[in-house]
Design a protein around this nucleic acid. Structure first.
Ligand SMILES: [Mn+2]
Ligand SMILES: [Mn+2]
Ligand SMILES: [Zn+2]
Ligand SMILES: [Zn+2]
Lengths: 138, 138
DNA sequence: CGCTTGACTTAGACATTGTCCATTGTAGGA
DNA sequence: TCCTACAATGGACAATGTCTAAGTCAAGCG
């Protein structure tokens, strides 16, 4: 079952049906759902779950570092349960499909000092864009 | 004056006071304003300019490739007049300050074939995050 | 077990960001 | 100067996200 759920239990969370369902919906690989997509899938399992609870629960998971917020387009944020293995994203410009990718090399090392403007740089986020096999064929 | 304005004129744009003002507001380096920030600055020069016109004009500039849309946070898109020199971004996680940066190396080359899942990858976008000198001092 | 209580959920109002449309205005050529 | 196609405007609407007041319930305790 859900690793995510186990970790949350271990953090002293009160276990409610709503939180269980949100965690279940987020289970899996290459999962990058918007809050409203999570809500829709959650409703299928627990019809009375509210939008506010989905937003609250996702926000808490992010705060705990168990879920990552990803903003690949200028639209809705996406929620990514793959929080414990650093990775980047490959996005289809046409259909929006998103895959986790693990580039070689360290982009942080590619930013020279004189390009840092005195910033303390701690993090880097890489988004590759292109066409997925299906969209490229069309 | 505005290079941007010159290029737009060259593309056969009808020159209106509104378009002139939007182009003026976007003039400069390291400029990454939201649509509503552009609107606020535009109003200071031309009080009757409407929000819809600012959105329209920005959208047209993006379509023409004279301005880039940047989505560094999950909030409002930002509009970047630096469209003719490829670059990436360095963002202060605290105050939101954004600088253009030019990393060495090519991140596209760092994505191995087996990490491409059959995608045709054409573009890569890198966002560095950290603290600007001012925020790091506080 | 069945209370108690503070944490959780809910519905819906509200905020922000962005899009669309019908109407009015005007830049630029004839 | 006049015409007209293109542009600007205000406001309705849509999508996403935040907040609050009131009701509900998980879980620790007697
Ligand atoms: Mn991911
Ligand atoms: Mn830029
Ligand atoms: Zn696709
Ligand atoms: Zn800062």
């Amino acid at each position: 079952m859900s690793d995510l759920l186990e970790r949350l239990r271990g953090r002293g969370w009160r276990m409610t049906a709503q939180r269980r369902v949100v965690a279940e919906v987020l289970n899996g690989d290459h999962v990058h759902l918007t809050a409203d997509e999570v809500h829709a899938k959650a409703i299928a399992k627990l019809p009375e779950i509210s939008r506010a609870t989905v937003y609250n629960t996702l926000g808490e998971m992010v705060t705990l570092g168990e879920v990552i917020e990803v903003a690949t387009d200028g639209r809705a944020k996406r929620y990514d349960p793959n929080a414990h293995r650093p990775h980047h994203h490959l996005v289809c410009a046409r259909c929006g499909a998103i895959r986790d990718v693990h580039p070689t090399g360290n982009p942080l090392a590619d930013l020279p000092d004189q390009e840092r403007f005195g910033f303390t740089v701690s993090e880097v986020e890489v988004t590759y864009r292109g066409l997925c096999p299906h969209c490229a064929a069309a």
